[in-house]
Design a protein around this nucleic acid. Sequence first.
DNA 1: CTAATTATATAATGACCGTTATATAAAAGA
DNA 2: TCTTTTATATAACGGTCATTATATAATTAG
Lengths: 202, 202
Amino acid sequence: MSDIKKIGRPRSFDYEEALSQAMNVFWEKGFNGASIRDLTKAMGIPAPSLYSAFGDKQELFLKAIDLYSDGDNCEPIVALETEEDIETAIIRFFEAIIQYATEHESGAKGCFLASCATTSVGQVEGVGSRIRASIVDTEIRLAARFDREIAKGTLPASFPSLERAAMMFDLRQGYIFRGRAGVGAKELKRGLEERARMLVTS
Amino acid sequence: MSDIKKIGRPRSFDYEEALSQAMNVFWEKGFNGASIRDLTKAMGIPAPSLYSAFGDKQELFLKAIDLYSDGDNCEPIVALETEEDIETAIIRFFEAIIQYATEHESGAKGCFLASCATTSVGQVEGVGSRIRASIVDTEIRLAARFDREIAKGTLPASFPSLERAAMMFDLRQGYIFRGRAGVGAKELKRGLEERARMLVTS
DNA sequence: CTAATTATATAATGACCGTTATATAAAAGA
DNA sequence: TCTTTTATATAACGGTCATTATATAATTAG
């Protein structure tokens, strides 16, 4: 499906790579703060190529959101799913979030959806629905981790997986917010163990 | 101190009122999204008056943040402090936040600091430090509510007031995020009682 | 080869951006 | 009254914004 020959002059840049670069610019500067010049410079293509390949700025932004959402490389969740002990897993989850929130490369901090896309709800149609879909997806994935413990028998069958998953999600927003405001990783990690303990307490 | 006669032509608009209107515009559209024309229109003054009274756009933004921070009219905190029963107080606290997050007037949703000012950290100098100061203030105030319960004897002396206050603060960010994304109040209130119970469990 | 199709490069478009000259009006001090 | 001081009103400034005309290059179809 990918190497079918298309008529016309072939593209001289990689679509996904360029989109990824655009996402980084949005991440760093926000939707309004990112100018077309910023974007084309980072993407390495002139403006007309951007418009013909991605549509206008709003469509490009939506495509960047989709690229981010589809990426399964969210380190915090991977950490949560990898670690066997549930309490340690939660700690690793938040530690990864704290790292994202405080020292992510290229000035982009936090979560692209949480700290960048959110701002543009109401300004760019389609952002809100995408974020809501992502929230549902994430919570399901987090809840599944608790369900695994229920299956293992380390958590009771009555354990409210989805509620605790939602709570983890909301706490995450707090870390991202603090990180954005400039609070350091060391300070953010204080009290982490107690939080993990609370989250698995029935 | 306020009715000293100053020389020169007196101002024809109310300083705080105009600043408040500016804040609303920033709240709704963000720092970059709010143009000087938007601001002057909402403030009811021409551009030169804006510049002479508030400085440039960045200074106006910082003054708006200060106005918001100094305002003691934060309904959620008032609700928390007013209600006597601690668990009910927490529920009222979050209910007020949910209302702010979902149906605040004039398009502005959430918390001015959390969902607007945050975006401009790194773009406008002085925003980060102001937000951090506000975080500390808020947490101290929230913790004080728990301390009151300790004094009353309804919570043990060992109760970790500050940690739980920080947790409430972070959960708040989750509500604001969801509200911004368009999640409704009804859905946000699900599980609220359990959260309140957890927050006061030692 | 020629025609059709698509991407590129260059540069221009009008609109709006934040900001500021300029001139005038309204107050206090002398 | 006349000067000084500050605020107002009007309009303009250069710069940048998102977007697109125009012309050219590279590919496939026939």
